[in-house]
Computed example of a mutant assay.
Amino acid sequence: MTLRVLAAGDHFVQNRLFADALRREVPGEVEIRELTLPWPVVPFGRVGEVDEASDVEDELIEALRGVEVCVTQMAPLTRRVLSASPDLRLFGVSRGGPVNANLEAATEAGVAVTFAPGRNAVATAEHTLAMLLAATRRIPTTHADLATGVWRGDYYRYEMVGPELDGSTVGLVGYGAIGRRVSRMLAGFGARVLVHDPYVDLPGKVSLDELLTRSRFVSLHARATPETTGMIGAAEIARMPAGSVLVNCARGALLDYDAMCDALESGHLFGAAVDVFPEEPIPDGSRLLTTPNLVMTPHLAGASKETAIKAARIVSADVARYVRGEPLAHCANPAFAAS
């Protein structure tokens, strides 16, 4: 029997990557229908009751007619989509968390939702180190000066230069797949690593307060939850030693960005680097655009060719398990898995 699959890819996790992975992983006949979503050319947002999705409910409903399996990164799995797609049984989200899927409604509809944990761990860890070094060594600022014909020899003044990683203490807030990779990379630089993560059983982990007071560099790697939202604010930044560097390549909700800007403007923080923001894209007039010693990238820490390939492969492997009648490796709605 032919398995009908909708590949709802975009301009990052492309449909050809889904198609290649599906044909490699899934046994039997597979009929692949394609729908190309506009992300990242068009930013994601809230669609219906789900977050970080492309606004394509109508197009998705039409494309899902007669389809049993959908693999995607940004398609919105809303109650409206589910009610209009009675043949759908598996929805594979090729990202680290299926925030664009209504898991409660999917469970009620008998649709399993899978995702791709760890797909961008390597890319994000590498980007974190790049951001940390860029902020510490003032790489973007000095490059911009040179590009406009300005040679700033005064950057060599003692008070203008940053610290070395070798021999420094780096605090990692969160120790999942990305935090662990960052830790291994930092060991190669000769840094001492402290870890705070209440959800990980790790000998030697420390409290958040101890991490902040002892670390010259702090990098955030926690998930955004009600407990972690705003976990790094003015009081926490004040506990960091003067001249510290703060990095956030995790989630914008973890950090009070006004407090960070205040600390940069006062000089308490030597530098900061962020890849994620409380509002994306950054609105016109935001103080982030004028705060000194701040390095920014537009939420692309996980952007690598390998991330896209791994994302397609991980969800396609779960499609293969579904076809073979095996338990799914990365089912996001365990109530469905238990039924």
Score class of each variant (00 low, 15 high):
Arg4Pro: 13
Ala7Thr: 09
His11Val: 05
Gln14Glu: 13
Asn15Phe: 05
Arg16Trp: 14
Ala19Arg: 13
Arg23Asn: 11
Arg23Met: 13
Val26Lys: 03
Val26Asn: 05
Pro27Gln: 10
Gly28Lys: 06
Glu31Asn: 13
Val42Phe: 09
Gly45Asp: 10
Gly48Val: 04
Asp51Lys: 15
Ala53Asp: 08
Leu64Tyr: 06
Val69Asn: 13
Val71His: 14
Pro76Ile: 10
Leu77Lys: 15
Arg80Val: 12
Arg80Leu: 04
Arg80Thr: 04
Leu82Ile: 11
Ser85Asp: 05
Leu88Gln: 09
Phe91Cys: 14
Ser94Tyr: 12
Gly97Arg: 05
Asn100Phe: 06
Leu103Ser: 03
Leu103Pro: 04
Ala109Gly: 12
Ala112Glu: 10
Val113Tyr: 08
Phe115Met: 12
Phe115Trp: 12
Ala116Arg: 15
Pro117Cys: 08
Arg119Lys: 09
Asn120Arg: 07
Asn120Met: 08
Ala121Val: 07
Ala121Gln: 04
Ala121Leu: 02
Glu126Gln: 10
Glu126Cys: 05
Leu129Ser: 03
Met131Asp: 01
Leu132Ser: 02
Leu133Tyr: 08
Ala134Thr: 03
Arg137Lys: 15
Thr141Asn: 09
Thr142Ala: 10
Asp145Cys: 11
Ala147His: 11
Thr148Pro: 06
Trp151Asp: 00
Gly153Asn: 06
Tyr158Gly: 04
Glu159Cys: 07
Pro163Phe: 02
Pro163Leu: 07
Glu164Thr: 06
Thr169Arg: 05
Gly174Asn: 00
Tyr175Met: 05
Gly176Asp: 01
Arg181Leu: 07
Arg184Val: 00
Met185Cys: 02
Met185His: 06
Gly188Glu: 01
Gly190Val: 04
Val195Gly: 01
Asp197Arg: 03
Pro198Leu: 02
Pro198Lys: 02
Tyr199Ala: 13
Gly204Tyr: 07
Val206Leu: 06
Asp209Cys: 05
Leu212Lys: 03
Ser215Cys: 02
Phe217His: 00
Ala224Met: 03
Thr225Leu: 11
Met231Ile: 09
Ala234Tyr: 09
Arg239Ile: 02
Arg239His: 01
Pro241Asn: 00
Pro241Ala: 00
Ala242Cys: 01
Ser244Met: 02
Val245His: 01
Val247Tyr: 00
Asn248Gln: 08
Asn248Ile: 01
Cys249Ile: 01
Ala250Asp: 01
Arg251Ser: 01
Arg251Cys: 06
Asp256Val: 11
Asp258Cys: 10
Ala259Pro: 01
Ala259Ser: 10
Ala259Lys: 04
Cys261Asp: 05
Asp262His: 09
Gly271Val: 11
Val274Asn: 04
Asp275Ser: 02
Phe277Trp: 15
Phe277Pro: 15
Ile282Pro: 15
Arg287Trp: 03
His299Ile: 07
Leu300Glu: 10
Ser304Gln: 02
Lys305His: 09
Lys305Arg: 10
Thr307Tyr: 07
Lys310Thr: 09
Lys310Val: 14
Ala312Glu: 14
Ile314Val: 14
Val315Trp: 10
Val315Arg: 08
Ala317Asp: 13
Ala317Gly: 13
Ala317Glu: 15
Val319Leu: 11
Val319Met: 10
Ala320Glu: 11
Tyr322Val: 12
Pro327Gln: 12
Ala329Lys: 12
His330Arg: 13
Cys331Thr: 15
Ala332Cys: 07
Phe336Thr: 06
Phe336His: 14
Ser339His: 12
Ser339Ala: 14
